[in-house]
Design a binder for these strands. Structure first.
Lengths: 217, 217
DNA sequence: AGGTGTGAACACTTTCACAGCA
DNA sequence: TGCTGTGAAAGTGTTCACACCT
């Protein structure tokens, strides 16, 4: 059913959606692929190709209806519903993510927090209580969790993933800087901040003078 | 000088490096492309291609010397030196990143922290004092900052980037969920956690039953 | 035999360019 | 005329397969 869609297309759709929602707040109306592309830092053809993978949402000569398109993209991304999320790892990053308002705004509800440290277990975080990671299967089932955000130290990550996957979770947002092993049908997305800094380091070191003296023709 | 290198290659090099350093700690020796690929979740041919873009680091029939290769990759990524980093935005995420040990371990030293909130300015964070973002140019120059980690709210981000770039910074790690506009020669890498969650949402919604009943040929 | 380095084949993504509808 | 939707062309990244060294 779903067409062959690349990861980059999905990332761009997510980007378009953020822009469309900002436009919606400012009144909506219509938008052209050129306009949307400009705001997203890509090209008009790319915008049209991305969208055309899922249907024909625009009107020739006119463009796209902002509110309508936002709804379509939300549907495509599966954001027309809420997701029940558990946070495993109640350290500094976990705590920052817990407070991160954009998650809830997008329908990702953190309904459970788990940690290994007895000093943290039992502490109240907003409306949820930090629970012992040893009980992870029970907690995930009780809360009907579908997505886990993993912010534990690297050496503990694989072990926890095995348990989480065993408990039926099929979506993981991984902050641990290791390659997780998961069976097919389980989706892992990595957030690796050190990797991004290293890419920056590479750019600054090697691409330093690639800047063209952009002469006009 | 620098060959045409793709972003994915750089990300993989960063990944290889982490694996090589773990091997180094366990004694070093040699490693084959097959072995490295397995640990990194890629293919042997990919590993060899990636490395061959920068030189011939292995020995036919033998593989790569772990310690040597780690050093080469560090050089390629520009990690054979320290980087002076400023953190702009002393909110929850900023504070979590400030404490993030892996940054320092990799040679990224946070030498300044800035925020707009008067309640935060003047507060001591470890060895640095939070300073007023209004003085950003002076601080960046005083501390000879080369890279900025940006963790301010989206509406403030572009304005600060303009000032930071004006002050000569050419590397930005951006946590604000907007498309930053920068002149050529400035490198921006984005960390967008909501986008990753949305990609996960897409996977769970659309790629649900793509799992092949992996039959052996 | 074992494993690298690499041109050539292949697969995937982006850009072009234009037919066709509003 | 204005702008979408889309095949075809161009460009980029990955995999194959093998010559070559140890």
């Amino acid at each position: 059913m779903s067409p062959k869609v690349s990861d980059s297309t999905i990332r761009r759709l997510s980007h378009y959606l953020r822009i469309l929602e900002a436009m919606e707040r400012r009144g909506g109306g219509t938008v052209s692929s050129t306009h949307l592309a400009e705001a997203a830092g890509t090209t008009a053809a790319q915008v049209r190709k991305d969208l055309s993978l899922f249907g024909s949402f625009g009107k020739r000569g006119l463009g796209y209806q902002v509110a309508d398109l936002a709804g379509r993209v939300r549907d495509i991304l599966g954001l027309d519903r809420g997701w029940r999320v558990a946070l495993v790892g109640a350290g500094r990053i976990g705590s920052a993510l817990f407070e991160y308002r954009d998650f809830r705004r997008r329908g990702f509800h953190i309904v459970a927090v788990l940690d290994r440290d007895p000093a943290k277990v039992g502490v109240r975080w907003g409306e949820v209580m930090v629970e012992d990671v040893e009980t992870v299967e029970a907690v995930l089932e009780r809360e009907a969790v579908e997505v886990v955000i993993l912010t534990v130290p690297a050496p503990a990550a694989q072990q926890i993933v095995d348990r989480v996957v065993g408990a039926g979770v099929r979506g993981i947002l991984n902050f641990a800087p290791i390659q997780l092993r998961t069976p097919p049908g389980v989706f892992v997305h990595d957030v690796n901040m050190v990797m991004e800094l290293e890419a920056l380091s590479f750019d600054l070191t090697n691409r330093d003078f690639d800047v063209e003296r952009s002469g006009e023709g």
